[in-house]
Write a protein that binds this DNA or RNA. Structure first.
Length: 836
DNA sequence: CTTAGCGGCCTTTTT
DNA sequence: GGCCGCTAAG
């Protein structure tokens, strides 16, 4: 096997570095690596790029021989270590750029790493084809060796949407009720299996039984078979196929093991089992051929960087275990801890560190900083009456900072769930405040974009039935369900793609003349476009396709409000394609990189989820929505139990550690969830913050007076719980809803509560809030009483804490529709109103 | 075959 | 509150 990219030589002299062994050619496969590295290290003065590293960082960079685990806390210069390490390897001439295997978890991280390496080694980074996400590297393996796993190298990568549609077809074909057994659910089961590297034959019997009365395994197998005939892969396959390929073809694996002289893994705590298996395969050293069996010589040069405290992707199969187990997986591993933080103030670190210390099973790191500025603010906790006021107050705070010349680019709002964003967006629009949503509704998930891409996909890959099925009748061509079904049946009978079957079908008289004409027209068009594929530039062809197919016209004729913006998006799509070599190259890019660059030059507040904030930092960070049920999220608790809670806590830790100087946490006492208003209580995480580094922000009451609400007897300035000062909740605890919830609380919830050691004690010690808080666990209970008929009747006069007095207009289970005197008609849970 | 209107559904995080 | 998909009517 040959690797063409290995021919690209690496320029020995690095810009801005002293010429260390610039004559060193990459070594032959048979080792001697350690010795030469040592020699190189000893022989020359420290290159520039090593200066300015602290001792631990330098150690991590220079320990290039054998396995290394770098436990890098938030803001300790993790990326710097990785990129410098790569530069170091290149500079010592220990490998060609193409012989370095470097994986990151997200596209963003890969991009950033590329940029930063480029700063160190210049254009050489272009010769690093194996720097990317696991998935993009998986694709690279597969394109080269597709035939080894039964694919052709022009296979399509399906996204979640395609997958769900395909599964739905299969479920229906099996005669299974797709209402009872939703395709979406099965798709996520498959995803889970593939994250573990399991094929249909490998899945546990119980898993198979768990779907459609035991048809799980058969469906999974049918799905895989279908992918095969479609010449397609889903996301999981991008990892599983390479694993299978390497296992079945040791010769191929061996070539890659030889090739990759250095392996680097970013965010190791986020790797799932499949990714781990792939790494293990690549990290095995081929047996030494010169008889040298010295262990260090054969130990893989693998360097994993991660932080167990920032593992937040357990829900999608990440195994923190991978990082906790590293030294057993790679015997003799060197472990380097980076604990010196360069990002955050002492208060922020103190708050974050204390919070995360509530987790068990950590490798344990304590971040420290030399930075001690008496002017640094403590972490501030604010209370608001409801989410609207929360958004208003945050907006106000932002404007104040703006007046103090803090740039909007230096501020971010990090939410737990994306639905929280809307309220902030609305507020910012009315304020005229620039904001940018990161990772929000994705460009490539929009309908018009997906339609357009479906056209492109069929042109590039005629066997892509899913894409074809999506657009045969878009715009409307009179090819309705009946015609498509007929076409589909033909395709299956002849075992050929639908497009090919269509060509046959138009030669018969099975279709009505009208449909036949349309179908024949489309197939001819596709044939024509395919002919242009090699000659016409991608973006021109794309434009031609959208024009000739009538797709653009369809939106031009559409009078709905969002039609113009859809046309705008299509334009942008064409624009983007022009930056690519070909339509094919573009499709590949999109399949892997679902996000699109946001214009960074605008000064704007960033709005994103906590998950997408990992790896970023901001001067000022706002963390709204710290309420039980939302954060920690109820579902994480329900499904993940204790480990779910710990993951939520890590998420909080990630949020806090994004902040450099200022961090504002908010919680509200009323939030609308699923269109219903619910009372909420402060997150337990608030109580896990250390007093020394946190202060409860005083409010001036200008935001609609929650502060005046039920300010309690207990609430002296420093009495009881620290959050008593945010006493609106005392009012809530006395609301009929809580009283009822308390009565309904099941023993299960109480036990649940009891398991949270320390916490309950703290609450109880504070008296009143203890038992009340327990009922808050009853928030769930309040929700689960849906089938209990409401004790109210239509016409009753009731009082609601947020909306005041009103009359019940309608009752649906425990959901009341109420005409409020002042607030208008609202839907609320009956637990939150009381008769007047 | 298409469209409009209605009902039932969900609603964490993402490569 | 919004989306999807179904149904009934054109």
């Amino acid at each position: 096997m040959s690797f063409p990219e290995d021919d690209i030589p690496f320029p020995g002299d690095l810009p801005g570095t002293s010429p260390v062994r610039s004559d060193a050619a990459p070594l032959a496969a048979s080792g001697g690596l350690a010795a030469r590295a040592m020699a190189a290290r000893g022989a020359a003065a420290q290159p520039d790029y090593l200066r300015g590293l602290n001792p631990e960082q330098a150690e991590a960079v220079q320990a290039i021989d054998g396995p290394v685990l770098v436990l890098a806390g938030a803001g300790t210069g993790k990326t710097r270590v990785l990129t410098t390490r790569i530069a170091h390897i290149l500079n010592l001439g220990l490998a060609y750029p193409s012989q370095i295997f470097a994986v990151t978890f997200t596209n963003k991280a890969a991009r950033e790493m590329k940029e930063r390496i480029a700063l160190l080694v210049g254009g050489a980074v272009e010769g690093m084809p194996w720097l990317g996400t696991f998935h993009s590297i998986g694709v690279k393996f597969l394109r080269r060796h597709a035939e080894l796993v039964g694919l052709r190298s022009d296979f399509t990568i399906l996204d979640t949407d395609d997958v769900v549609r395909l599964i739905k077809q299969l479920i229906q074909a099996e005669g299974i009720d797709d209402k009872r057994w939703p395709a979406r659910q099965f798709a996520s089961m498959i995803d889970g299996w593939k994250n573990k590297g399991l094929a249909p034959a490998d899945i546990p019997e119980g898993d198979s039984r768990a779907f459609a009365n035991g048809k799980g395994r058969a469906l999974f197998a049918a799905y895989q078979a279908r992918l095969q005939t479609l010449n397609a892969c889903d996301f999981g396959d991008l990892l599983c196929h390479p694993i299978r390929m390497f296992r079945n073809h040791p010769d191929v694996l061996k070539e890659y093991q030889r090739k990759f002289r250095f392996l680097l893994v970013d965010e190791y705590q986020d790797t799932n089992t499949a990714q781990y298996m792939l790494l293990r395969l690549l990290a095995q050293r081929p047996a030494a051929e010169d008889g040298d069996t010295g262990r260090r010589e054969n130990a893989p040069n693998i360097c994993c960087v991660g932080d167990d405290d920032q593992s937040i992707y357990g829900w999608r199969g990440a195994e923190v275990e991978n990082i906790l187990r590293f030294d057993r997986d790679f015997p003799g591993a060197k472990v380097v801890r980076l604990e010196r933080n360069y990002r955050s103030s002492e208060h922020i670190l103190g708050a974050a560190g204390h919070l995360i210390s509530h987790n068990e099973g950590r490798l344990g790191k304590t971040l420290f900083t030399d930075r001690r500025d008496p002017d640094d603010d403590r972490v501030q906790v604010h209370a608001a009456w409801d989410s609207e006021e929360e958004a208003r107050a945050v907006g106000e705070e932002i404007e104040q900072l703006q007046r103090r010349d803090v740039r909007l680019n230096d501020m971010a709002i990090l939410v737990r769930a994306s639905f929280q964003m809307r309220e902030f967006e609305e507020r910012f629009v009315t304020l005229g405040l620039n904001y940018r949503v990161i990772g929000g509704p994705r460009f490539y998930e929009r309908q018009e974009i997906r339609d357009a891409m479906a056209y492109f996909r069929v042109v590039c890959q005629p066997a892509d039935d899913l894409a074809f099925g999506r657009i045969v009748n878009v715009p409307k061509r009179g090819l309705g369900e009946a015609s498509v079904r007929l076409l589909h049946d033909h395709a299956r009978a002849d075992d050929k793609p639908m497009l090919a079957a269509a060509q046959d079908l138009v030669g018969t008289d099975e279709l009505k003349p009208r449909a036949r004409k349309s179908l024949s027209d489309v197939t001819e068009q596709f044939a024509r476009w395919q002919g242009l594929l090699e000659t016409m530039p991608g973006h021109e062809l794309a434009e031609v396709i959208l024009e000739e197919s009538g797709y653009t016209e369809m939106w031009q004729n559409d009078r709905s409000a969002d039609a113009p913006s859809r046309l705008e998006n299509l334009k942008e799509l064409i624009e983007t394609i022009s930056g690519f070599e070909s339509l094919r190259a573009f499709l590949e890019h999109v399949a892997l990189v679902m996000d699109v660059d946001t214009n960074a030059d605008m000064d704007a507040v960033s709005l994103m989820t906590l998950h997408s904030a990992k790896g970023l930092e901001f001067d000022t960070v706002f963390l709204p929505g710290w309420e039980e049920g939302l954060f920690p999220h109820q579902r994480a608790l329900d499904e993940g139990g204790r480990s779910g809670l710990e993951e939520e806590r890590r998420l909080a830790y990630v949020g806090l550690t994004r902040a450099k100087r200022r961090c504002h946490i908010w919680f509200v006492s009323n939030r609308r969830i699923h269109g219903l208003w619910q009372s909420t209580i402060p997150s337990r995480f608030l109580d896990e913050l250390p007093e020394d580094h946190v202060e409860v922000a005083e409010t001036d009451g200008q935001y609609g007076g929650y502060a005046s609400y039920g300010r309690g007897q207990s609430g002296g300035p420093y009495g009881a719980s620290r959050f008593d000062r945010a006493e609106p909740f005392a009012g809530n605890y006395q609301s009929p809803g809580w009283r009822r919830a308390q009565q309904n609380a099941t023993s299960a919830t109480r036990e649940n509560w009891g398991t949270r050691s320390g916490h309950a004690v703290e609450r109880v010690a504070y008296g009143e809030s203890g038992p009340r808080a327990r009922t808050i666990e009853g928030e769930l209970v309040a929700r689960s009483t849906t089938d209990v008929p409401s004790s109210f009747s239509v016409g009753d006069r009731v009082f609601h804490l947020k909306f005041g007095n009103g009359n019940i207009a309608a009752i649906d289970g425990n959901k009341l529709t109420i005409d409020f005197d002042k607030a208008g008609q609202k839907r609320v849970l009956d637990g939150f109103v009381e008769p007047v």
